[in-house]
Write a protein that binds this DNA or RNA. Structure first.
Length: 375
RNA sequence: GGGGAGAUACCAAAGCGGCCAACUGGGGCAGACUGUAAAUCUGCUGGCGAAUGCCUUCGUAGGUUCGAAUCCUGCUCUCCCCA
């Protein structure tokens, strides 16, 4: 159940609470991505105790291939398997339809994948991705969709939207005829597609809204299109998606993207950027973004981020973190990931506070200036 | 003392008459990364220049040749084997 607590007077931003069996999720929220049952390089304990992450993601495709559904079933679901007691959301594998182009074939029935691990063939359908997600036991399951690439011609996206909604109808049937395996209710979120075409997005948003599920997602964005296009699409879609249900913008994005999307009425985000970019030496800080590998940090003994979004941010210096990352030390990737996630989580948490105070818009504008700095 | 091998850019290491400012690794410098096939990938790495290009390089000093990192001679240094 989703409750809106307050709205920003000068934007579409809202602060709410999404209740799930494994805990309440305050929105806006950022969800760290833990594709293979792990937020890469980070202990569950750090996610909860240090960063206070409220919910994390898993991925149907990756978990299905490894460890496989038999193991997950024996384990009693992903929560138990990975010792994570808070909410989980699983992506359906729809993004892999996009990212594994060349390793998959689309049919009306579903997507035939060649495993990136051993080349074996598998089929994902709207039905079996629900079944797999039932076994995983995530609090929020995603409908199987086609995430179309960008750029993409109109005819293709039109077909893609039709396929996604055909799949959605089937997913809902399966969702309704099956029950959770582990005693906790599971929500199903449908996904709006339509590329950067306004009419296709409208059509998809209308069909999505009509499904009447407990939350709705927008997919197929941040796949290469200019940010302004993405913002425009968000506005069009959010005009149509029900106001009283959480809106999840999938795969987004940069700190600035998050604030712009919150401004337009988005409640939930996930993105690999804080963890992947962190591992690759890119840090998001309250001063702006920086490449930790750059020589200029070699003798900078100031804290990673003096505003301290996480415990490691003030505990370690830039010079030390640079040394770790340059040396390829595991700890470097770990500290960078923890800091970046802490930064993202604190950013949306502060956005939430500002919304409740009613001065989100002003704060957002000043933040965007800072966040756009390249140090 | 005798015999042998070798000296190439920051390091290692190819090249053995023109296609060589010199393969490839490493290191260094910079960039990318958005529902994770990613602790990955890309570019640059003698000097000057935006660039065609020009200049200076393959231990060192000479030589042969239209042309030398590559062939010849002297010198210096290193390593290995035998005494």
């Amino acid at each position: 159940m989703f409750t809106i607590e307050s709205r920003d007077p000068e934007s579409k931003a809202r602060a709410g609470i999404l209740k799930t069996p494994h805990g309440d999720i305050p929105t806006p929220i950022f969800m760290p991505v833990g594709t293979a049952g792990t937020v890469k390089g980070i202990l569950q304990r750090d996610l909860t105790d240090d960063m206070n992450a409220k919910i994390i993601l898993g991925n149907t495709y990756h978990l299905y291939l490894r460890p496989g559904i038999d193991i997950l079933k024996k384990a009693g679901g992903l929560h138990k398997f990975m010792s994570w007691r808070r909410p989980l959301l699983t992506d359906s594998g729809g993004y892999q339809v996009f990212s594994l182009t060349g390793n998959r074939k689309l049919t009306d029935e579903g997507a035939i994948f060649k495993s990136h691990i051993d080349g074996s063939r598998h089929i994902f359908t709207p039905e079996n991705t629900i079944d797999i997600q039932r076994i995983i036991g995530a609090d929020i399951m995603m409908a199987f969709d086609e995430c179309a690439p960008w750029p993409c011609d109109y005819a293709y996206v039109k077909k893609s939207v039709a396929l996604t909604h055909h799949w959605l109808d089937r997913a809902i049937i399966r969702y309704k005829e099956t029950d959770p395996l582990w005693g906790a209710e599971q929500l199903l979120f449908p996904i709006v597609q339509g590329g950067t075409f306004d009419d296709l997005r409208k059509e998809s948003a209308e069909k999505t809204a009509l499904a009447g599920l407990e939350g709705n997602a927008i997919g197929g964005l941040s796949v290469g299109e200019p940010a302004e296009e993405m913002y425009r699409i968000i506005e069009i879609v959010n005009e149509i998606l029900p106001d009283d249900k959480p809106r999840y913008l999938m795969g987004v994005g940069t700190p600035v993207n998050l604030l712009e999307a919150i401004d337009r009425g988005i409640d939930m985000f996930d993105c690999v950027m804080p963890t992947r970019n962190g591992r690759n030496g890119m840090l998001f800080t309250s001063e702006g973004t920086l490449n930790m590998r750059n020589k200029k940090w070699a003798d900078d003994f100031s804290p990673i981020d003096s505003e301290g979004p996480s415990a490691v941010s003030t505990m370690y210096s830039k010079a030390y973190l640079r040394h770790l990352i340059i040396s390829g030390e595991n700890l470097g990737a770990q500290i960078a990931s923890i800091h970046n996630l802490g930064f993202y989580l604190k950013l949306v948490e502060e956005a939430r506070e500002r919304i409740k105070e009613g001065n989100f818009k002003k704060w957002k504008n000043s933040m965007i200036k800072k966040l756009s700095e390249r140090l």
